[in-house]
């Protein structure tokens, strides 16, 4: 692991991604520093999900250069060539990046506690007792201590998403990716999930958050990136982008979301 704090956590250089003939990302350039919380905004179909899925190699990039913590995503560079990583190497890389999905994707046949413990035990081969302690304290951190034995089917959307966040944190990731974590929730359940995320942001976690929750962006984000049609239209501090946007497209979008 590179401990060099000057290396950005995520660095994207001219990232392109096509599905067949459809070019979805048309040259994305951005950097996320250690401890930075970046929110990614943009209309539906602008490529936000695709971009964060590239970061943990759930999709492969078509062109460009993407590094996480100084390491190329999905490839090894050797004598001027890119060699595809083996499955175990990709898995090892993903294990250090947490991901939270719009639809939670908890494992329905496991209890909340089992969901959280599965990867540290199965992937990292950590001792069960240690993992259990950590899982219980994570459940407490997301306010779900009393539901450790509950199956996801018995939990509300907000509760499921909090367990999903705990599950990702159990792998002690260096980077957390959130893809619209609150947009599948009933309005009254959004707050409890955002609170957990704000708490995480203040603890110094590096986060990329796709969200339309302007409150979250203003309160805890260090930077805001507005994407449209596969390009970054505008990026900067929350005040700069949300309060005083320079581009018409950004203004239109923000006026619609607010």
């Amino acid at each position: 692991m590179t401990a060099d704090t000057r290396v950005p956590m995520v660095r994207a250089e001219d990232i392109r991604k096509s599905f067949g003939h459809l070019e979805v990302l048309k040259g994305i350039n951005l950097e996320v520093q250690r401890g930075e919380v970046m929110t990614l905004l943009g209309p539906s179909g602008s490529g936000k999900t695709t971009f964060i899925r590239l970061i943990n190699h759930l999709e492969t990039i078509t062109a460009g250069r993407l590094t996480v913590d100084g390491q190329l995503v999905g490839y090894r560079e050797h004598q001027d060539r890119l060699h595809e990583l083996r499955e175990s190497e990709v898995a090892g890389m993903r294990a250090e990046i947490g991901m939270v999905f719009q639809r939670f994707n908890l494992f329905p046949h496991m209890t909340a506690l089992q969901n959280i413990m599965a990867a540290p035990i199965g992937v990292r081969r950590e001792p069960k007792g240690v993992v259990r302690e950590r899982a219980l304290s994570l459940l407490e951190r997301v306010g779900m201590s009393d539901k450790s034995g509950a199956y996801p089917g018995a939990l509300s959307g907000g509760q499921q998403q909090r367990v999903a966040i705990a599950r990702a944190l159990a792998m002690q990731p260096k980077l957390m990716l959130f893809d619209e974590p609150t947009s599948a929730l009933d309005p009254e359940l959004v707050g409890e999930v955002l609170d957990v995320m704000k708490d995480l942001a203040r603890s110094g976690m590096t986060m990329i958050v796709v969200t339309h929750e302007m409150g979250f962006a203003k309160e805890v984000a260090d930077s805001v990136v507005f994407m449209d049609d596969g390009v970054v239209v505008e990026a900067g501090s929350p005040d700069a982008v949300l309060v005083d946007p320079q581009h018409q497209r950004t203004r239109d979008f923000i006026s619609k979301v607010l």
Partner: peptide, 17 residues
């Protein structure tokens, strides 16, 4: 659901597991 596989992959699990 495909999301199940993706969530497991994102946690660093390999195909067999």
């Amino acid at each position: 659901d495909k999301g199940q596989t993706e969530a497991a992959q994102a946690l660093g699990m390999k195909r067999g597991r």
